[in-house]
Computed example of a mutant assay.
Amino acid sequence: MNADFISAIQELGKEKGIDPELLFQAVDDALVAAYKKNTGTNQNVRVEMNKETGEIHVYAQRTVVEGEADGINEMTLEDAQAINPQYLAGDIVEVEVTPKNFGRIAAQNAKQFVVQRIREAERGQVYERFQSRANDIVTGIIERMENQNVYIDLGKVEAVLTPNEQIPGEIYQYHERMKTYIVEVKRTNKGPQIMVSRTHPGLLKRLFELEVPEIHDGVVEIKSVAREPGMRSKISVYTADSNVDPVGACVGHKGMRVQTIVNELRGEKIDIVKYSEDPAQYVANALSPAKVVKTNVNEADKICRVVVPDYQLSLAIGKEGQNARLAAKLTGWKIDIKSETQAAEEAAVEPAPVEEA
């Protein structure tokens, strides 16, 4: 094995961003395997390679034992002390057993081991890179679709968008650029597997963080997200800065900021509401665009009873109960919605309190 081979390993390590010592360890492993294969032996050996000249030495390692040696991996105390009187039972004696022309025999083996180790190291680097980006947005290009799965090219790795993580009704086109949310990074024998989502509430949150500087800078905080993918979402926002309108910051000038996010989600409607520590006010805000006339909070059961104008009852409930359902998810409160007429009728039939004699 010559100096050019050593230089090539060092350059390859730098080019791939892999510690050359890792590749030299692969060469050592390859040389040990080559020696055992070439000699047909299973003895314990250590390989020493000069990293400047490429010169190789192979040493058989034998354990010193008292009495008779059992097999090629042991040496009697008498034989060991003939080499060096200081050897004791339990010590390891190394005897050079380098075959002639061993460098030429081992070179091909070493090459295969180095290539394999580079692949493993690159897979490890990709895994660590994406593991640190879990719960983040990535942009990739749709590569192919198989068995209802969408495979997205992220550069050095492929992400998988499974059917249950796809927005219902969304159409995917080959070579189309698309943002997805990393939900899990798995380590497999074939390399890292990136599982992504288009339906996760975290996707909506991260899109706002990317689009709204006030959220990115921490001036405006996203308190909660409720989402029915492809249909409608609600997001509650808060700021401690009295000079900043958190809802206006998210909407943007002429609605441009929120519209960018709506376009990315293929037309999904987004309601942005102001967070309040007062549950009654928070629930009222969450039922937007409906206007709330009155609220009654039951802290023990965490139920909020809401009264809205008659003409806004259907708006407050929403199509198939969607608006009320999303508001409940957003706030964490059960919401009972009545129209003013329904509330008045219920109040009229309630029995008057009985006075005690």
Rank of each mutant, 00 (worst) to 15 (best):
E128V: 01
A134M: 13
A327I: 00
Q259D: 13
R177Y: 10
S197M: 09
A240Q: 14
K294Q: 12
T41A: 06
K338H: 03
K100C: 00
T199G: 03
L330A: 11
K111T: 11
T41C: 02
K294F: 12
A226Q: 04
A69C: 05
K179N: 09
I272P: 03
I194D: 03
S224L: 02
E320A: 13
A69M: 06
A347Y: 10
N149R: 12
Q10L: 12
R187H: 10
N243H: 12
I194N: 05
A280F: 06
V308S: 07
N38I: 00
D241V: 07
A286E: 02
I222P: 07
P213R: 08
K186R: 14
T341H: 12
E356K: 14
E158C: 00
G318L: 06
E158H: 01
Y59R: 05
Q193H: 07
N38Y: 12
N285L: 02
N73Y: 06
Y151N: 06
E11K: 15
E264Q: 13
G248V: 05
V114N: 07
L31C: 12
N263D: 15
H253Y: 10
E66L: 02
I215N: 04
T76K: 08
A159I: 09
A30D: 02
T63F: 04
V354R: 12
V157T: 15
L287Y: 06
A343W: 14
G169R: 10
E52V: 14
R227K: 11
C304D: 00
D245K: 09
Q108A: 14
V212R: 05
G13N: 06
I9H: 03
Q86G: 00
E120S: 07
E346R: 08
A80M: 08
T180H: 02
N298H: 13
